[in-house]
């Protein structure tokens, strides 16, 4: 079947004039129409197709250019703003540092003042306390003296009232001590 197809094709080719492209009777109209079609297409493309393409490409080019310019302008503006902010920030930082320094100095001054006044107060309190202690000591000594006198007087009283042996004296002293202990108010 394949072989016969081949044979049929070969027969057909042999019967014809070879390649159909070399048949001169179809040349002239193709030359004419090729040129005519080309120039008609050229005319239509030039009139209706190329202008819109060029227009939109130019428009896009213009838009890109203006966008780039706008972006550049914005960038410069942002740069300026950034510099301003940095300047302000630096000024603020300087001011803050200055304030802190001032505060520190003032604080130191107050601290010194406070320390001095405290020292003075403490010294005053100390001297007062010392005076009080001294007075108390003196009072205690006087009291002790009175007490001893009282005891001695009491003991002497008892001693004079009756003759006493050692036991009696000891008993009397014990009584006196007990009496004083029982009633310390008597010593005042």
């Amino acid at each position: 079947m394949i072989a016969s197809a081949y044979a049929a094709t070969a027969e057909h080719a042999a019967a014809g004039s070879g390649m159909p492209q070399f048949e001169p009777s179809v040349f002239q109209h193709q030359i004419v129409w090729s040129i005519a079609s080309f120039f008609v297409l050229l005319y239509l493309l030039k009139k209706y197709v190329l202008p819109p393409i060029e227009k939109i490409l130019d428009e896009r080019g213009g838009k890109i250019r203006s966008d780039l310019e706008a972006a550049e302008k914005s960038r410069l503006e942002a740069d300026k703003i950034r510099q301003d902010v940095q300047r302000q920030l630096a000024a603020a930082r300087r001011l803050a540092e200055q304030t802190v320094e001032e505060a520190r100095l003032e604080a130191a001054k107050y601290r010194d003042l406070a320390r001095e006044s405290l020292t003075q107060e403490l010294a005053k309190k100390k001297s007062v306390a010392l005076a009080e202690i001294d007075a108390a000591k003196r009072a205690a000594v006087a009291e002790l003296h009175d007490a001893v006198v009282d005891i001695a007087m009491l003991a002497t009283e008892k001693l004079i009232a009756k003759s006493m042996n050692k036991n009696d004296v000891s008993k009397v002293v014990q009584e006196a001590v007990t009496a004083i202990q029982a009633n310390p108010g008597k010593l005042q």
Partner: peptide
């Protein structure tokens, strides 16, 4: 096949 031959000409397209 012979009857179909013109259709099977590979140069028919041209």
């Amino acid at each position: 096949v012979a009857a179909a031959a013109p259709k099977m000409d590979p140069l028919h397209h041209f």
